[in-house]
Amino acid sequence: MEYEEAGLPAEPSTPFNSGDSEEHVMSEVHLGCPPRSSGPHISCFTFPIPPGTKRHSGADVEFEGASTCPEISLDGDGDLVLPRRSKPSNSSSGVTIQHNILSSIPNVGLQVWKAELALADFVLHRMFTSSDFDRIISLELGAGTGLVGILIARVAKTVFLTDHGVEILDNCTTNVHLNSMTFSNNQTSVYVRELDWKKSWPPIVGVDKFPSENRYAWSPSEIEVAQEASLLLAADVVYSEDLTDALFNTIEKLMSRGSEKVLYLALEKRYNFSLNDLDIVANGYSHFLSYLRRESVDDAECMELEDGLLPCFVGKRIDLAQIPQYVREYERGNDVEIWQIKYVSS
């Protein structure tokens, strides 16, 4: 197996004054946890495995090695202490995630956010009820802790976890290693790679043997594989208009190359008081919607030109009432949405 995050992480939902000059924030997922302005924390996110779950092969879905999250701790030097594997159970599973409870705004990708867990529910439901994700190539944009991609790795062929910033990428790599036993039998290749949406795709490649300061650079062969990804994933990446513009610029380049792709994007609508509107509005969400044409009976509402259709993104909101909440450690609420997005080029 190969262990090696695109985009920037999500907007914080809870400001926190840590006493220093830099504002720190806390995800609602961690409210009630002891505040910690620095240092990692280990959490186990658990979910039941529906009895009699089958895939197209007729075999039970296997989540060996993740039936219960092991009690992982840090030694005096801050290194992970890993216990022996426990005997798997057939009724429940989980994913072990190292994360921060507090972070500065540029490093909110070190935390776990609500839409990330909602997307995990969606992914688990598809894995439990279909073979759609079996042996696929998947790329996650703004992967943060890597939780969703690590779940996909249990059935996928290749997974790219992409984000921006060495600290976030290092933490994501740690989580891949923490959960490697859950996809080792599937022989999944998992890569953690740097992807800055404000730069062009494909990214600049590294040399054959990456120097330590460039360990998250891409190789030419990895870019070729990533462009054949059929599944793109993103969670908690919609909040800033500039970054949303950069996100869709990157998505357009990805979706117009290689194999046909579909993006599943989870977001949480975040509201602020606007002086222009004199009302509480979700401007980030509205800007996101401005990129989408709603899916219709005719498949797309893109503008027709003389020689075809104007390229556009076609979006359909997933009915979350039809997606069970498998992950136990959060409250989904009413402001979380998941969108299926396709790119129509002609």
Rank of each mutant, 00 (worst) to 15 (best):
M1T: 08
M1W: 01
E2S: 11
Y3N: 13
E5Y: 10
G7A: 12
L8P: 00
P9K: 00
T14V: 13
P15I: 04
F16S: 03
D20Q: 06
S21P: 00
E28G: 04
E28R: 09
H30L: 07
C33A: 14
R36V: 05
R36L: 09
S37L: 10
S38N: 06
G39N: 05
I42P: 00
S43L: 06
S43N: 13
F47C: 05
F47S: 07
I49V: 15
I49W: 03
G52W: 11
T53D: 02
E62H: 11
T68F: 12
G78E: 05
D79V: 01
D79F: 12
L80A: 09
P83W: 07
P83Q: 09
S86Q: 14
S89L: 11
G94L: 05
I97F: 01
N100H: 13
P106Y: 02
N107Q: 10
V108T: 15
G109A: 11
Q111R: 00
V112E: 03
L117H: 01
L117E: 09
L119I: 02
D121L: 03
D121M: 02
D121A: 07
L124T: 06
H125Q: 13
D132C: 10
D132M: 13
L139N: 10
L141N: 09
G142N: 08
V148N: 11
I152W: 09
V155M: 09
L161F: 13
L161W: 12
D163T: 00
H164P: 00
G165D: 09
I168C: 12
L169N: 07
N171K: 04
H177R: 15
F183D: 02
S184F: 01
N186C: 03
Q187D: 07
T188Y: 05
Y191M: 11
L195W: 15
D196F: 07
D196P: 03
K198N: 13
S200C: 06
V207G: 14
F210C: 14
P211M: 06
S212G: 02
N214G: 04
I223F: 10
I223V: 15
E224I: 14
V225G: 06
A229C: 14
A229Q: 09
L232M: 11
A235P: 00
D236Q: 02
V238Y: 00
Y239E: 08
S240K: 14
S240I: 02
E241P: 01
T244G: 08
D245W: 01
D245C: 06
A246V: 02
A246F: 10
L247Q: 06
F248N: 08
S256L: 06
R257N: 12
G258L: 07
K261M: 11
V262M: 12
V262N: 09
L263W: 05
L267D: 02
K269G: 01
Y271P: 00
N272Q: 12
N276S: 13
D277Q: 15
D279C: 14
N283R: 15
S286Q: 14
L289M: 12
R293C: 05
E295S: 13
V297E: 06
D299R: 14
D299M: 08
M303W: 01
L305S: 04
L305Q: 10
G308H: 05
V314S: 04
V314W: 02
G315L: 05
K316G: 03
L320D: 05
A321P: 00
E331V: 10
W339N: 03
W339A: 04
Y343D: 03
S346L: 04
